[in-house]
């Protein structure tokens, strides 16, 4: 015979509002929407590119060029950096601790390594896109 366990009543849709850590968690998790949006934009770009016509590619680029898009991308970049990229790096030593024998690599080393690699990757992508060429 098992007794009914006591379940503390908790609002299903607003449980995170009263606690700063939970709010931070929710702000972090909703970045998946931005990942989805940019995947969709990339697929849209591939569709235009794979048509084989420079006109359709030009039309795709033209469709991206308006003030609303500028504002969206600028806000998205800041939000994404703070809540996705930097949070992901912050959690990396907890998700993937590195150990040599008995010795554990300090978390700060792993985080700094992530930042260094991120700067390198970003510069590489920008170089690949020709942004860094004069």
């Amino acid at each position: 015979m098992s007794r009914q366990p006591y379940v503390r009543p908790m609002p299903k849709a607003s449980w995170y509002l009263g606690n700063a850590r939970y709010r931070r968690y929710m702000l972090r998790e909703v970045t998946c929407l931005l990942v989805g949006v940019y995947c969709a934009l990339l697929i849209w770009a591939l569709a235009a590119l794979s048509s084989g016509s420079p006109e359709r590619w030009g039309a795709f680029l033209a469709a991206q060029q308006n003030t609303a898009m500028v504002v969206f991308h600028a806000l998205a970049l800041v939000y994404y950096l703070v809540y996705m990229t930097f949070d992901w790096f912050k959690l990396a030593p907890k998700a993937m601790p590195v150990q040599f024998g008995e010795q554990k690599l300090p978390g700060s080393v792993i985080v700094i390594g992530h930042y260094v690699a991120w700067i390198a990757v970003t510069l590489f992508v920008l170089w690949l896109a020709g942004v860094l060429q004069t």
Binding site: L34, V35, M69, H73, V121, L126
Partner: peptide
């Protein structure tokens, strides 16, 4: 790692 650069490229295009 990659999407900040991708977003920056979309921003440049915009």
């Amino acid at each position: 790692f990659l999407f900040p650069a991708v977003i920056a490229l979309f921003l440049l295009v915009a």
